[in-house]
């Protein structure tokens, strides 16, 4: 034997050379650059944009999109998609509004449990029965909207007046709105999960190559169910925030089209729809880009229809920049 393999752990390993850094998502930096350009441009040219009240307003508006986009990023990283987040928000809002008379804790917990269960149903159908994610969550999108209306007494507007519940959507901690804090905590936890825990690896491995992941001992099914549960849980939180902000549960309106905003944020942020990769920070940047555009167009009195057209253009450019490249 020419050389010993030295699989004995007592032999100190030689340090391999380290000069090469991975291209840590060029598109994430591109998105960050685009955000900076937008903010600076608006600060210079849009009257009243660079005021602290307006900037807090942007963060306030974006917090619910960020919450759902974080969950959506994890789902998309497993190669799936979750169309049901908007409906889950409405269900959570409805459950909380109806149960508030029994106490804030009961209402909030029940809302989050129901939301999470909806996610577990999504994940189980997808991972266990191998139905396509887009079909399963489309069904939940439709059913959830109906469920929310049933819960809130056939779709009545249920008004909410509870000082403790109001904190979610209208409270502040110092200058910082509580909902912005909640979104930040969710972002922090998600980044930590992806970077530092086996679960994060399992998410990326399941999305990158599910058969290979399974053979390497990755609990693919459990991982997939978990990400849909997390996505629904975060959507539930977002639903509570919106209900608190509105002071009412509006089963027909809460979370409407939220799934599209969340997917747009994820895509603009640089997470590939094909799965196996994820950037939570990118999704936050993506959500901010969309929000800054919406806010500034609003301030510049640009018609809403035109702002939608520009949103669409941005999504297309983001996807174009991420396309697989030929050598």
């Amino acid at each position: 034997m020419a050389q010993s393999l030295g699989l004995d752990p007592s032999v100190p390993p030689a340090r391999p050379a380290r000069q090469w850094k991975p291209r840590a998502g060029i598109s994430a930096y591109a998105a960050l650059g685009a955000l900076l350009v937008l903010v600076i441009g608006n600060a210079l040219f849009t009257p009243n944009f660079a005021t602290s009240s307006n900037l807090w307003n942007v963060l306030l508006q974006v917090s619910t999109v960020v919450l759902t986009a974080v969950g959506m990023t994890l789902v998309i990283a497993t190669g799936g998609i979750d169309l049901s987040v908007g409906s889950v928000m409405a269900v959570a809002g409805a459950v909380a509004a109806v149960l508030l008379p029994r106490g804030v804790m009961v209402a909030v917990l029940a809302a989050l449990v129901v939301a999470t269960l909806m996610g577990i149903v999504n994940g189980s159908l997808i991972a266990g029965m191998r139905v396509q994610p887009i079909v399963v969550t489309l069904a939940t999108l439709i059913a959830g909207r109906g469920l929310a209306q049933v819960i809130s007494h056939e779709g009545e507007l249920v008004t909410i007046s509870d000082p403790a519940f109001d904190v979610l959507g209208r409270g502040h901690l110092g200058p910082v709105p509580v909902q912005v804090l909640i979104a930040l905590v969710a972002v922090g936890i998600a980044i930590f999960l992806l970077r530092a825990t086996p679960f994060g690896r399992y998410v990326l491995a399941s999305g990158g190559n599910a058969p290979a992941a399974r053979l390497a001992g990755v609990p693919v099914r459990r991982t997939v169910i978990t990400v849909y549960a997390m996505s629904a849980f975060l959507a539930g939180v977002a639903g509570l925030v919106v209900a608190s902000r509105l002071g009412a549960s509006d089963a027909a309106k809460i979370g409407l089209n939220m799934e599209l905003d969340a997917i747009a944020a994820v895509v603009v942020g640089g997470t590939a729809l094909s799965g196996g990769r994820a950037t939570i920070a990118g999704s936050v940047v993506g959500a901010l880009i969309m929000q800054v555009i919406a806010t500034s167009f609003n301030m510049l009195l640009v018609p809403y229809a035109w702002s939608l057209a520009l949103k669409a253009l941005i999504i297309l450019v983001a996807v174009y920049l991420q396309r697989p490249r030929r050598v």
Partner: peptide, 19 residues
Amino acid sequence: AEGIIPELSIRENLTLAAL
């Protein structure tokens, strides 16, 4: 098809089963 997780690094691929 059943071995590598293409988008992950050598480190992440190597330690996957031992996590």
